[in-house]
Design a protein around this nucleic acid. Structure first.
Lengths: 349, 349
DNA sequence: CGTTAGCACTCGTCGGACATGAGTGCTACG
DNA sequence: CGTAGCACTCATGTCCGACGAGTGCTAACG
C-alpha cells in the first residue's frame, strides 16, 4: 500500500487535518477554523488555522461544500489521517470488556466463532461486520458419505475443522442401495486427505470405476470443488447490517440500497473482499474512492486477516460510511482478529 | 379472521375505496376526488365521490393528512380492500414466466428450494421474501454420528428430508476414540425414528448408560432438541431485504432500521411469523396496526403455508410497507406457495 | 517570514409574507 | 339522490431580507 508516498506535511498541517477529521467524524458537520483553534489545543489563532486549511485544500485533503461553510475531509484526507495514525489504538473500557466477555466463553466451532465475532465487531463499531471464512483447500476430510434418501441421494462431507458441506442429487438411474454402500466404502480411502487432494483423487477414481460409480464420484468431486472454490459455498458472513440503516449513519438512501444489495450477493461481496484484502498487511483500510465498490457505496472497509499459526486462513472486518471512526474501528478489528487467530490456532491443534 | 365482520358498504363505496387504495399504492400521493371521478370509470362527478369519501373517512377507512389534501387509506381501509378482493388474482405475464422458469429446474434439496423461492418472491414483488422452513419434529433421522476431531467432537444429524444439523463440543474427559465409536454404534438404533422420538429415546439411553456415555448422549439429545424447537437452529430464510431500502418504498428511516434489526434476529422474526401465520387460511395478510411488530414497522406481511400432501410443513411470504400492492403480492405468494407445496409433496415420497 | 488581528465578502439557512392551487365541505337546485 | 357551484382551508413554492458562520485577504507585528 501507499505507506509513505504522501508528503509529510509538517507537524502542524498534520495536526490540523487530524483535528478536522476527528471533529467531522464526531459531529457530521463541516468544521470551521474557529472550532479547531479552540479545541485542538494548537495555541494558534483561527486565522492561522485558515491558512493551513487552505493549504490542505490545495493539497486535496479537504474540501468545501460551499464558500461559507467549514471543511470536510476528502477520501485522500481520510487516507492521510489513517496512515499517520499511531499503530496501537486504544479501546474504550466498555469495548475491552465486550471482547473479553465474548472470547471468555469456551467456543469450539470455528464457524460459530466467526458468526459471533462478526456480531461482536458490529456491536463494537456500530457498523456492519464481515468475515470470509477459511476455504476448505487444506482442510483434511474426515467423513465422506452417500446417504440414501429415497428418490434422492445426499452427499455429505465433513472437514477436520468443522465444516460440513452437503449436496442433494437425484438418484442416478440404476443406482441401488448396495451400489451406494459400495461406493461409500470406496470413499473411506480418502479420509485424512485434504479437500483439494481428495478432489483430484476422486476424478481419478471416477475414470477407473464402472459407469454408475463414475457418475456418483463425479458428483462427490463437484461438491468438494464447490467447497474449495467457494463460488457457491464459501459464504461471506455478515452481521449487524441494520446498523448501517441508522439515521446517524447518514448514508444516502440510494447508496445504502446498493450496499445492501451487494451484502446479499455473497459471491460478489467475496470478490470485493478478496480484492481489497489482498495486501499482506495486518490491517487493511480501503477508503471510498480507493475501490470501485466502496466508491459506489461512499463507504470504507477495514479488514484484517486471521491465522492459525503463521498461515492466513480468513479475513474479518467491518464496512461503514467513509465518515467513519477509523481510530476506534481499526483498533476493534485488530484486536478481534488477534483474538480470533489465537482461538483458531488453539482449535487447530 | 375477520372474514365478513365489516359492513358491506354498498357497491359504490367499495369501488371508491378500491380506487383510492389502488391509486395511492401506485403513486404514493394522497388521492383527491377528481382523480377518482376521472379514472375509476364510475360515471359520477367528483362531488359525489367527495360525499362517498367523507363517508368512508367517517367509517375509518380513509384519512386526511390535512384538510386540503387528498385521502389515503387507513390500515382498516387496506383490510377492507384486501378482504373484498376476488380470490384469484392475476399475475402479469412476466411474473408467470419467472415462476415457471424457476420451478422448471429440477431441484431436489428442499432447503435450497426454499432459499430460491424466497429470492423469487422478493423479485416478483419487490419486497422482502421470508420463509419458515419445516421443523424437524416429524422428520425421520437417517444418520446420527459422533465424529472425532481431535480436541473436539462433532455431533452430526441428518434427516430424511435433507436437513443437516451439527454441533461441536469439547471432548469430555475420559472419552477416547473407542468410546466414541461404541456410542456411535449405539446411536444406529435410532435411525428411522423421528427427531422427536429419537430425542426422547436418547434421554432414556443416557439414564441407562455409563458416565461417559451419559454426557455424550445428552449432548446428542440437546442437538436434536435445538433442531426441533428451533430456538437456535430453525433459521428464518430472508431474501431481498435490500428491496425495502429502495427510495420508492418510502419507508421511514427509523422504521426501516427496526425492521432490518428484527430480520437479523431470526428467533424474534420466527416468533412474529408464527404469531401471524397461526390462522389456518391459505393466505394470510397482516396489515400495519394489526400486529405490534408490523405496526412498529409500518409494514404488512403476507404469508401462505406450504404443505406435503395435506399437512402444513412451513410458511412462505413477503414483508413490505403497508402501502403495498396487495393484489399482486397476494397472487405471487399464493402461486409460489402452491408450486412449492407440489414440489415438497413430490420430494416427500 | 510566519503569525495574527481585522474586515469585507460569500452564501446557506431561517423566518415571514404572499400567491397558488389542490382539494374539501356545504348548499341549493334539478 | 346526484350534481354544479362556490367559499374555504391549508400545504407548497417563491421571493425577500436578516442573520451569521465561515472564509480569504490585507496589513501590521515580532
Amino acid at each position: 500500500m501507499a505507506e509513505r508516498e504522501r508528503p509529510e506535511l509538517g507537524p502542524r498541517k498534520g495536526a490540523v487535518l487530524r483535528a478536522v477529521v476527528e471533529q467531522y467524524v464526531r459531529t457530521g458537520e463541516p468544521v470551521g477554523s474557529e472550532t479547531i483553534a479552540e479545541n485542538a489545543g494548537l495555541g494558534v489563532s483561527s486565522a492561522t488555522i485558515r491558512n493551513e486549511m487552505a493549504a490542505l485544500e490545495e493539497l486535496g485533503y479537504l474540501k468545501h461544500p460551499h464558500t461559507s461553510a467549514g471543511r470536510i475531509p476528502t477520501d485522500a484526507g481520510y487516507r492521510h489521517y489513517v496512515d499517520s495514525l499511531p499503530a496501537g489504538g486504544r479501546l474504550r473500557e466498555a469495548q475491552r470488556r465486550l471482547i473479553a466477555g465474548y472470547f471468555a466463553e469456551a467456543i469450539v466451532d470455528l464457524e460459530e466463532v466467526l458468526k459471533g465475532s462478526v456480531q461482536l465487531l458490529s456491536r463494537l463499531t456500530q457498523y456492519a461486520g464481515l468475515a470470509v471464512p477459511p476455504s476448505a483447500n487444506e482442510e483434511p476430510v474426515v467423513r465422506l458419505e452417500l446417504i440414501d434418501m429415497g428418490p434422492t441421494v445426499m452427499i455429505l462431507a465433513v472437514g477436520q475443522h468443522g465444516r460440513v458441506d452437503k449436496h442433494v442429487i437425484d438418484r442416478p438411474d440404476g443406482v441401488d442401495t448396495q451400489t451406494l454402500a459400495r461406493v461409500e466404502r470406496r470413499l473411506q480411502g480418502l479420509r485424512g486427505k485434504t479437500y483439494l487432494v481428495a478432489q483430484a483423487r476422486l476424478l481419478q477414481l471416477a475414470a477407473e470405476g464402472s459407469k454408475e460409480e463414475h457418475d456418483l464420484l463425479l458428483h462427490v468431486a463437484e461438491l468438494l470443488r464447490v467447497a474449495t472454490q467457494g463460488e457457491g459455498s464459501t459464504h461471506v458472513v455478515v452481521g449487524g447490517a441494520s446498523n448501517l440503516a441508522d439515521e446517524a449513519q447518514q448514508m444516502r438512501r440510494e447508496t445504502l440500497r446498493r450496499l445492501f444489495e451487494t451484502l446479499e450477493r455473497e459471491t460478489e461481496m467475496l470478490a470485493v473482499l478478496e480484492d481489497i484484502g489482498s495486501g499482506q498487511t495486518a490491517l487493511n483500510v480501503t477508503i471510498g474512492a480507493e475501490h470501485p465498490s466502496t466508491q459506489e457505496w461512499e463507504a470504507s472497509i477495514i479488514t484484517a486477516p486471521f491465522k492459525t499459526g503463521d498461515t492466513t486462513i480468513g479475513t474479518i472486518g467491518v464496512v461503514g460510511p467513509t465518515r467513519m471512526d477509523y481510530l476506534s474501528a481499526m483498533a476493534s478489528v485488530r484486536v478481534v482478529a488477534k483474538r480470533l487467530s489465537e482461538m483458531a490456532t488453539e482449535l487447530d491443534q
